[in-house]
């Protein structure tokens, strides 16, 4: 568990933070979201001591981060940033193996781990010997994520890792990352200014503004009961309804019923936004749900209050 207790950072480089307390559970994908300059990156960087708080403390599993030497602490925490920061003079494989090499792993073990990670991030094994400059932006970002996870850290920090990518590539990486997170059970703290990305990825979201936590909760909580007008303004707007659909699964809104043979079907783990899209596309009010006998998803189901 990562615990911020009344943490403040007044000035110096980066954005200010004012009296923030937060608890991030183990295995959680926790998103810090907020406008530029809100202090979210500063909070993230306090976890691996790239920024030291003026007041308050950050503890990991009860232990103050200041009690561990900075380099040891950082080798145990994955770190991925928007600009990726791959070493341009090292091959993909060598970049991914950076932290294991710092930790003194054997070459065989590093090589095996690099192969495993490249497969996990759907990187073609043939690019292992390439230099970063020879990769696409999406591939570089995947390598950056692989590098952050290389030494199987219990915690991974990600600072707008997908921010510089085009929407299609970003969405692919978000899905891949969600799956990887579910498979590995790593605690992830993820910074973004993109509310859709936060809602898409986060188990829980902390909305940061002006160095304060305005609201902390699940995506559904932020959408259904925003704490104040600022949060409402950020999560709401013209697409508030669609966002609400996008954070709920077909599984959560399906109802018993029957449909005519030949009705298109949708996966129970798809989100309701996709269900709505399919309804519009096929001009039907009700769809069959894959792998759930006797269950359908209907337009009324979409409109019903979340349960």
């Amino acid at each position: 568990m990562i615990e911020f207790s009344n943490v403040s950072k007044r000035f110096g480089q980066g954005e200010a933070v004012d009296g923030v307390s937060l608890q991030i559970a183990s295995g959680e994908l926790f998103v810090l979201v907020g406008p530029s300059g809100s202090g979210k990156s500063t909070l993230l960087r306090m976890i691996n001591r790239l920024v030291e708080p003026d007041e308050g403390s950050v503890r990991i599993d009860g232990k103050d981060v200041r009690d561990t030497p900075a380099t040891d602490l950082r080798r145990g925490i994955g770190y991925a940033i928007q600009s990726v920061g791959l070493f341009p003079h090292w091959s993909v494989a060598r970049n991914i193996g950076t932290v294991p090499r710092l930790l003194g792993w054997s070459n065989d073990r590093i090589e095996a781990r690099v192969q495993e990670l490249m497969a996990m991030l759907e990187l073609d094994a043939g690019i292992a010997t390439r230099l970063p400059a020879e990769l696409s932006g999406g591939q570089q970002q995947r390598v950056g994520v692989a590098r952050a996870m290389a030494a199987t850290p219990a915690i991974v920090l990600m600072d707008e890792p997908f921010g510089a990518l085009d929407p299609v590539t970003r969405e692919k990486l978000q899905h891949a990352f969600r799956r990887i997170h579910a498979d590995t059970g790593t605690t992830v703290v993820f910074v973004t200014h993109d509310m859709d990305e936060a809602l898409q990825l986060g188990d829980r979201i902390a909305f940061i503004d002006g160095g304060h936590v305005r609201q902390c909760g699940t995506p559904l909580e932020l959408l259904l009961s925003p704490a104040d007008e600022v949060v409402r303004g950020f999560v709401g707007g013209a697409s508030a309804g669609l966002r609400l659909l996008s954070v709920r699964k077909v599984r959560d809104a399906m109802t018993p019923g029957s449909v005519a043979d030949g009705t298109p079907s949708i996966n129970a783990d798809a989100d309701l936004r996709q269900a709505l899209s399919m309804m519009v596309d096929s001009r039907l009010r009700t769809l069959r749900v894959d792998g759930a006998d006797g269950q359908v998803i209907s337009l009324d189901g979409l409109l019903a209050p979340p349960r």
Partner: peptide
């Protein structure tokens, strides 16, 4: 960026100079 990444991954100052800065 390379320096920020090196710091974030737990390079000490000497190692960062040797492995990242001088080669670049």
């Amino acid at each position: 960026d390379a320096i920020a990444a090196a710091d974030g991954m737990g390079y000490g100052p000497w190692r960062r100079l040797k492995d990242a800065e001088l080669p670049l």
